[in-house]
Design a protein around this nucleic acid. Structure first.
Length: 465
RNA sequence: GCUUCCUUAGCUCAGUUGGUUAGAGCAUCUGACUGUUAAUCAGAGGGUCCAAGGUUCAAGUCCUUGAGGGAGCGCCA
């Protein structure tokens, strides 16, 4: 079965053929006209462009036509014809119209005039029907597909890492507890502690904050793997760049050093942006025209420029020499603040920057230690306005160095015994990174709030829909 | 979590120094118009000014508290 969708009719009308019968179904964006002819703008989500349905008022009951309001869903049979009007090449001359579902215009919240993003967020169940969100959701799909295609074409294997975990992976942030306890009656041990032995898994468990540690286990067997799944952070973060539930892509590669890692990250992002330009130009044009006049130019430029590669120490020097007054003073050893990253990316270099070799104190325990004893082979990819889009590193492959670092941080080998086993048995140099999927989408769509690039955002105090 | 701003018609927003009956566009309803492009034109209906309390002769406007939302910062992807 091959059902035609509006995209097929609009993009390749020859498939149906001018003058031939056609059947279309979709949601009404607007109806206009006069006593003799009515024009219905129809959209089925397959493409941002509407298909114009022309209804001769003599052929239809007035009562039927009045039901065709913004938001209603209709089924039309008719003939595909060349359009007499400007603005579209083809249109459907309606023979029959069936109203699947009406939408009382006094109650239907979406109108054909502009709505604010804030208002649309409050009706997240209906906003997929807007042009804007249709574009975002099609781009979101295209990027998800392109991610799988990119890795599959390069021999990476999609590894499914667990969402429920007992490890406090890398201390990446606050975690959501997972339990089947009756919270009004939590079992306690004799000394008053929560008795997790009685819980579902027999130990304290959380929703994952990263699939990386398990990803490394896969890389130490399959060579190159990637994960792509939801990730959870219980941080009380209230910003346009944070979600409590978001999607992350985490490739992990055996025999990749930090330079290989950077090469992959840069190539990967450029591939994804190019994929959007090649496959979703209709959506990008709409977003470019309606929301962000520089969007397409910005995307094209990213595919062409070489990302700046810079050591942390050199970055500190640049910031120290900057004329700009920073709220947070700069000195070697600090974790870079937003204002510092933005200065480097938006003012100094004016293109994406990959920062490497951070002080070990501000990075995670598993990162490969440099010979200077002070820095680790971390890399952060920084993008204009959205900041850190990728964080990664070459991993510490040496068992003793890893153990020493873990002890310095007051952690124990027992917590991560399975992770340490990869360093005990057939350890190998390897690297990986995490790409925030929604942050990628912020860049690709030109949207400015991360809540507008995921269908149903989860943020502090908000889990509606 | 900290700082700050916003909340007026179904939607987007004006509303002066506190002063008569709170306005506009779109949407809705009525009418006009033979091909529109967020159609256009004429008219009509539509308000607990976020909530509670306070100051005042008088509050959409000032103050306090609360709710919801945005932005900046922190945490990070």
């Amino acid at each position: 079965m091959n059902k035609l969708r509006l995209k097929d009719i609009i993009k390749t009308p020859e498939v149906v053929g001018i003058g031939n019968p056609v059947e279309v179904k979709g949601w009404v964006r607007s109806r206009r006209g006069n006593n003799f002819v009515q024009f219905i703008a129809l959209n089925d989500g397959s493409i941002v462009t509407n298909l114009q349905v022309v209804a001769d008022t003599a052929k239809f009951d007035e009562a039927l036509l009045k039901q065709i309001t913004t938001g209603s869903c209709i089924h039309v049979t008719g003939k595909l014809v060349e359009s007499q009007g400007k603005g579209q090449n083809v249109e459907v001359q309606a023979e029959t119209i069936e109203v699947y579902g009406s939408a009382d215009p006094e109650q239907y919240p979406l109108q054909k005039k502009g709505h604010s993003m804030e208002f649309l967020r409050e009706i997240a169940h209906l906003r997929p029907r807007t042009n804007y969100f249709g574009c975002v959701l099609r781009l979101r799909h295209a990027m998800a597909f392109a991610i799988h295609k990119y890795f599959n074409d390069r021999g990476f294997f999609y590894l499914h890492t667990p969402l429920i975990t007992a490890s406090d992976a890398e201390g990446a942030g606050e975690m959501f507890n997972v339990t089947t306890f009756d919270l009004n009656n939590i079992p306690r041990t004799e000394d008053g502690q929560i008795d997790y032995k009685q819980d579902f898994f027999g130990k304290h468990t959380n929703l994952t904050v990263s699939g990386q540690l398990e990803g490394e286990l896969g890389a130490m067997a399959l060579g190159n793997i990637y994960t792509f799944g939801p990730t959870f952070r219980a941080e009380n973060s209230n910003t346009p760049r944070h979600l409590a539930e978001f999607w992350m892509i985490e490739p992990e590669m055996a025999f990749y050093d930090i330079k290989d890692n950077m090469d992959l990250a840069e190539d990967f992002i450029k591939y994804l942006v190019q994929y959007a330009l090649d496959n979703n130009m209709d959506d990008l044009k709409f977003l470019n025209d309606m929301f962000d006049k520089e969007l397409i130019a910005r995307l094209e430029s990213v595919t062409k420029v070489d990302f700046v590669r810079l050591g942390y120490t050199e970055a500190i020097d640049i910031l120290l020499q900057a004329k700009k007054k920073f709220e947070y003073p700069v000195k070697w050893g600090i974790d870079l603040q937003s204002e510092h990253e933005r200065y480097l990316v938006e003012n100094h270099f004016k293109k994406p920057v990959i920062l490497t070799d951070y002080p070990k104190e501000i990075k995670a325990f598993y990162m490969k230690q440099n010979d200077d004893g002070k820095t680790v082979r971390a890399m952060d990819v920084l993008f204009p306005t959205i900041g850190e889009i990728i964080g990664g590193s070459e991993r510490e492959a040496d068992y003793q160095k890893l153990l020493t670092r873990v002890h310095e941080l007051g952690m124990t080998e027992e917590q991560y015994w399975w992770y340490f086993d990869t360093r005990k048995f057939g350890s190998a140099p390897h690297s990986g990174f995490g790409l925030g999927f929604e942050r990628l989408l912020l860049f690709v769509t030109g949207m400015t709030n991360i809540r507008d690039v995921i269908p149903f955002p989860r943020t502090p105090q908000n889990a509606e829909f």
